[in-house]
Design a protein around this nucleic acid. Structure first.
Lengths: 208, 208
DNA sequence: TACGTTCTGTACTAAGCAGTACATATTTAG
DNA sequence: CTAAATATGTACTGCTTAGTACAGAACGTA
């Protein structure tokens, strides 16, 4: 049981034949495939081709398909969903919503990455094998939603939201809009339409 | 090329061995499976078992998996999405939204049918085989969205919406919320939470 | 009774899937 | 130079998938 990280412990000299690919790059390529096709839709053949490695290399480095997906999901949350964290630090509830919606727009409707949200795609029923992953993604999302609820409760305590507004309802409503945007993005709706949807949603925001 | 419908042309006497199952019932069972598992997630084995027939019977009666799905989708739109039509006939834009949201709640979060919207589930990427179906479902949805845009334009012309509101943006925003609700329902969010989301969305509706 | 027609059930085909065995190549340690 | 260790590529396993061939069963008609 050695704990040799991908980015090497400097001093440790690897003993055998050196790896001919960069695991981080390969994982990023895998992420793109999962993001585009979903867990079940991405075959090991497609994954290995996109990653530029063979199946035995993949299995030796990442375990199996499910483990690979989980690592890709970690990368996704760390690299692509970072706007969620910073959005929650905005000073007002409205700014939180604004930043969340625009962050989603940038991340899920850009032209350098696949359209839509990997999380939403992964919670849709598909194969049987994906069930454990579905449950995992749903759990991760739930914790993220709890954070938003807490943020909006704080906002109401700070007098930042009208008293008649239910913070939990508002938080869940906002994630609903975000998930709806993701569905539309995945379906190929163009970015201009999505921008107008975000504008409309913000125009409707309580206490604008 | 005879056009013998499922519900028989009365006069025509069927010549061979009579069918031992009801195609309408079988189709309804198939719909439930597709609704629960998605197109790719539903295997022919699961379908035939739920429908109570064998594979040759299925292929003889419905063609193939894709044709079966399309017939199930027709049934779904006719039986389960009928609230969309009637919602558009409501006298005000707000009542349209109210009826759409409550209709979605009843249809996608009931306890007699699977959770979520078959249309949304079917537009998520999964297998390669589902691509043509995805495109088809997206096209169907687009025409439905056009109808709502037209309805909201009419509402603005009738002075039923504030002048500063963009009818197309509002229609697309509403479908976004509806699709988001479907994602949440599919993920197992309980109906009470969804009701509160609908309430929040309606509280935000322009010119309440 | 015999025939044509249609449905049913068993048993199959071919393809795609995730995952792996094994021989070979490339490295460090001694 | 040899041995241990790790990575690689080919070729495979076993399983599941959609779809079908074929024999037999049940009907109307003659």
């Amino acid at each position: 049981m050695q704990a040799a990280s991908a980015t090497a412990c400097a001093g440790s000299a690897p003993r055998g034949r050196p790896r001919e690919f960069d695991p981080d790059e390969a994982l990023a390529s895998a992420l793109r495939v999962f993001w585009q096709k979903g867990y079940d839709g991405a075959s090991m053949a497609e994954l290995t081709e996109a990653m530029g490695i063979t199946k035995p290399s993949l299995y030796a480095c990442f375990g199996n398909k499910e483990a690979l997906f989980r690592k890709a999901l970690d990368l996704y949350e760390r690299d692509k969903l970072c706007y969620v964290r910073s959005a929650l630090e905005e000073p007002t509830a409205r700014l939180v919503a604004e930043r969340m919606l625009n962050g989603a727009l940038a991340t899920h409707c850009g032209d350098s990455d696949p359209q839509g949200c990997l999380g939403v795609i992964s919670t849709m029923p598909c194969g049987i094998e994906a069930e454990t992953i579905r449950a995992d993604v749903i759990a991760r999302r739930r914790s993220s939603e709890q954070a938003m609820i807490a943020r909006f409760k704080q906002a109401r305590d700070e007098g930042d939201l009208p008293d008649h507004v239910d913070p939990e309802g508002l938080a869940n409503y906002l994630t609903t809009v975000l998930q709806g945007l993701s569905v539309k993005a995945t379906s190929g709706t163009d970015r201009e339409s999505l921008k107008r949807i975000v504008q409309t949603a913000l125009a409707c925001w309580p206490c604008a």
